[in-house]
Amino acid sequence: MTDLTVKLPGLNLKNPIMPASGCFGFGKEYAQLYDLSQLGAIMIKATTVETRLGNPTPRVAETASGMLNAIGLQNPGLEKVSGQELPWLEQYDVPIIANVAGTTTEDYVEVAKAISQAPNVHALEINISCPNVKLGGITFGTDPDVARELTRAVKEVSSVPVYIKLSPNVTDIVSIAKAVEAGGADGITMINTLLGMRMDTKTGRPIIANITGGLSGPAIKPVALRMVYEVSKHTKLPIIGMGGITNVDDVIDFLSAGASAVAVGTANFVNPFVCPEIIGQLPERLHELGFDSVEQLVGRSHRL
């Protein structure tokens, strides 16, 4: 029997596969298609203190083997997420990782404190890497000192382990990772999207109304793998890796590079059954490669 379980701070995962934040809403839509209890965990859409209406449309544009998005953290706000979305998810046997966003440290602290008390929230993912909002988000994720202090502030109030979501839009991602480790983070999730643009060739105007957007999908996998590899080499924090995962071999690659579990984002739009399909294929693929547990695979590239 292949052992798919993964133990991480706050999280006893049945398997290492979970949908990434923002690509799965609060689960309701995909629950029409399959039983969410199959998933290792669910990373819910970013939650802010107040309702956020997001950016003007177009908010998405297709690019070579990828897509840009500038949703702008649209979400119903803390009260609705705590009062409606999270209780609804309780019917499933699946740990929730709540994605927390804000424009000030106080915002992050307020959401983290409240949402970490929900019974099914087993960990927080602090989004200091959203490229699509004018204030906050990415500014917290590009300066190591700011990232460390935010981590500290959130850690102080959270009732569950805290994972910090790193931005790839930095020169030295290891320095940010080390800073959040020093701030007391329990883990790292990475990567968020890469800032990009697409033009309408005829008019010369950017397609995305926000002008720039975050690049995701298969196109970013090499960048994500490189960053997971570097960060896992230089910090002790467990990593939930993501960026361009579409199939079981991508999962193997992220685990080999040093991730302990993975998240699947954009691929849900292409194949809504991608998560359960990968979970189904994982035991056989591990077996073929000569492993009988997921944990054996984690970070193997560093041991070769």
Partner: peptide, 16 residues
């Protein structure tokens, strides 16, 4: 509207 998921999960196609 331009779409991502097509089923209501990604907030790509929102109008006020």
């Amino acid at each position: 509207q331009r779409m991502g998921c097509g089923i209501g999960a990604c907030f790509a196609c929102v109008c006020r």
